[in-house]
Simulated assay, not measured.
Amino acid sequence: MSTISCEEPGEAPLRRQPTQRRSARRVERMLDACADLLDEIGYDALSTTRIAERAGVAIGSVYQFFPDKRALTQAVTRRHVEGFVSRIGRRFLLEDYAGWWDAVDAIIDEYVEMHRTVPGFRSLHFGDVVDLNLLDPGSENNTVIAGRLRGLLLQEYGLADSEEFDLAILVAVEAGDAVLKLAFRRDPNGAPEIVAEAKRLIRGYLNRQFARVSA
């Protein structure tokens, strides 16, 4: 069994990094346009031409930084991941939790909030509708996410690191992802009763696994 990596996802999809503030703002407009269009028309109908038109840039500007729509979508997904982890980290700093179980609830709450409010998030989640390896060619998307959340939990709660802990976090992420997708299929805002069940399921599972690992 391989240990989950908590490293940053693989190489960024940008052909080159913007070196000036104006270029960086232009790239952000492209990503905003891509995210909005994903929600409006879906990935199959998405094109670099439509993204350029929505962003108000020349098509050549798109190709200057991104080779195709997949690379743009990959960049949007990476932005989602960084935003998700950053928002969770900020909550961990500002809020007091009785233990890891309340932190898990906060992670789920943040996922639900981003699903409701962040353009492109509901269409991509973390990219699995486009490519299971969108974030990192060597790891499935949820494995990358599990690694990032694992790092946060280890840092905040001093849980014992082990391959068993890695596996428990990965299974919890996969299970939570599946149940929360069900919640949003039932209700565009996330059926609250199913979100509550997701929290109970993950807390119960992790409680049993952490107790077994610590025994």
Rank of each mutant, 00 (worst) to 15 (best):
L132S: 07
L94P: 07
H80I: 04
K69I: 08
E40N: 02
A75Y: 01
L167S: 15
R122T: 12
L201V: 07
R54S: 01
A71I: 08
A55E: 01
E53I: 13
L46P: 02
G127I: 03
V179D: 04
F126R: 00
A196V: 06
D177Y: 11
D36E: 14
A178D: 15
D68Q: 09
E113I: 12
R186A: 10
G204E: 07
C34M: 14
A75E: 03
R79K: 08
L38Y: 01
A35W: 03
L153C: 04
A198K: 00
G190Y: 00
M1L: 06
G190Q: 05
R203E: 01
Y111C: 10
N133C: 15
A71E: 03
G138W: 11
F165Y: 06
Y43M: 07
S162R: 11
R50G: 06
A52V: 09
I51V: 12
L31T: 01
I107P: 03
P119D: 07
R50F: 11
I194Q: 11
C6P: 09
A55C: 11
R21Y: 07
E113Q: 15
R16H: 10
A175L: 13
P137F: 03
I169Q: 00
D161C: 05
L182V: 11
E11L: 14
H125I: 15
G60Y: 12
L135E: 02
L149A: 14
D68K: 09
C34P: 10
A196K: 06
G42F: 14
P9I: 03
K69A: 10
N141P: 05
R185I: 07
D136P: 03
L31H: 04
I145L: 03
L37T: 04
F92D: 08
E7N: 04
K199G: 12
R90A: 15
G151V: 05
L38W: 03
E53D: 15
P192H: 10
A175N: 11
V27P: 01
G204A: 02
D177L: 15
P137M: 12
D39Q: 13
D131R: 05
A75L: 03
D44P: 10
E40V: 04
L182E: 04
L135G: 05
R22K: 14
L93N: 12
E82G: 11
E164G: 10
G158P: 04
A191G: 05
N141M: 02
M30V: 13
A12H: 11
R16T: 15
V85F: 08
D177F: 11
H125L: 15
Q209I: 02
F121Y: 14
S47F: 03
E95A: 10
D96Y: 14
E174K: 13
V129G: 14
M30Q: 08
S47I: 04
F165H: 06
L37H: 02
